[in-house]
Write a protein that binds this DNA or RNA. Structure first.
Lengths: 229, 229
DNA sequence: AAAAAAAGCGAACATTCACTCGCTTTTTGC
DNA sequence: GCAAAAAGCGAGTGAATGTTCGCTTTTTTT
């Protein structure tokens, strides 16, 4: 059996619902927001405007007047949904981390076939970053507007992923399923490819490669790179 | 024969000299700078300060007061070396493009063994981006502070590189030197790896992988991915 | 339907920033 | 060694930005 993007999406919805209610759940108390219906819609328009503006001019260069105009919400109105500009970035980061971890950590992979585990790991990462494309892109590009603590969380989960990949390759070698001569480099390569998917979305869109095809190609490359027998 | 980073550095010096005189040559007329000796030194301290500050807080978030303090040059003094803040970014971009193109285009690769050509292409790119690490990183992260024209130049040279890689793979297939079933994906993968080298410098530094080792690993992967016979 | 609560508004405020300019110091040309 | 030119200085300026707050409109509760 192989995971597909469609089945992943179902899993995502069952697990998280959607990103806007997730943000609401995380922050409504802090911000004194009562009406879930209204607030989730506003979060959607605000954050999508933030994504659009920071994609073209960057988060720091985006002014709150820009955001007000783009979202159609007044300055005073905006401030009901965050307490200062930097908190917007923080909310996006924190919610994205929460969603990604919820999605990636439900499965306990250990003690299965390491090559299969590696496939699962890579596929799930592509799928979650496909579902949350703009979130991943934002977090990568704007991580400098962040405080140390959140940044550390991100770095940690980055490293966790890198090590997980490496471990599977080493396991596969140990179990004589593969003979990879440069596991460190190959795992770095695979991580770079996970990143490329959300950093260069336009490129793959232009080449008409969807998430499933990308995963298929990635897994083919894994077989060649670690020389699965 | 194989190019090494050391021999590349000699070539670079012979061709360009160093980055600061390059910037001086490109901009001294516009800025009315007369003393080459003084100006190149100042450019060095200013731009290195820009790299440091924009690495930690981003170019947009960096204020000219920050820059003044970091470089030890007064506000008025700084403005002798650029006419407005955004021009700093433009100068860095333009100079970096100029240096990279000078380095990459001297060699006319066509009509040799395509696999050899591919190796050369990749190696040269790693080496130039190693020599100009901070420049490449800055251009990637801060390209949003740019006007359309310069951005287009960058995009064009990006695409040129991608196509050059792809062509070599297709040629190798055609000449029956390799049998790559997914040339589009493999070329995307190689490009991603070129980028990873200057985006994640700290990672490879930590793993004690230098430019030559990186190239060697990359070339090994090429052989596996395009299945050289 | 009235009253209370929540959501939304935008002009006003204080602050910060990029940038300037009159001046001093250093370098260059003779 | 002196005059002219170049380089360097930093307080001052106007514009723009993040943030607030008294008020209006909409929604919820009773």
């Amino acid at each position: 059996m192989n995971l597909s993007y469609e089945t992943f999406l179902q899993e995502f919805e069952a697990l998280i619902g959607d990103e806007w209610t997730c943000i609401f759940d995380m922050y409504h108390k802090k911000l004194n927001l009562k009406n879930r219906n209204i607030a989730t819609k506003k979060f959607k328009t605000i954050i999508e405007s933030v994504f659009k503006l920071s994609h073209t001019k960057g988060f720091q260069a985006m002014t709150l007047r820009d955001l007000s105009q783009e979202s159609g919400i007044s300055m005073g109105g905006l401030y009901k949904y965050f307490s200062n500009k930097n908190q917007i970035a923080e909310m996006i980061h924190a919610a994205m981390i929460h969603m990604a971890e919820t999605c990636l950590k439900i499965k306990e992979y250990r003690h299965l076939d390491p090559v299969f585990e590696l496939n699962e790991l890579l596929a799930r990462h592509i799928y979650i970053s496909e579902r949350l494309k703009k979130w991943f892109y934002f977090v990568f590009m704007e991580c400098k507007s962040l405080d140390r603590e959140l940044l550390n969380t991100i770095m940690a989960s980055e490293q966790f992923m890198g090590e997980a990949i490496l471990e599977r390759i080493l396991d596969a070698n140990k179990q004589n399923l593969s003979q990879c001569t440069n596991p460190d480099f190959v795992s770095a390569m695979l991580k770079a490819m996970l990143q490329d998917w959300y950093l260069k979305t336009w490129k793959y869109q232009q080449k008409n490669i969807n998430a499933d095809q990308y995963v298929a190609n990635l897994l083919l490359s894994v077989y060649q790179l670690i020389q699965v027998k």
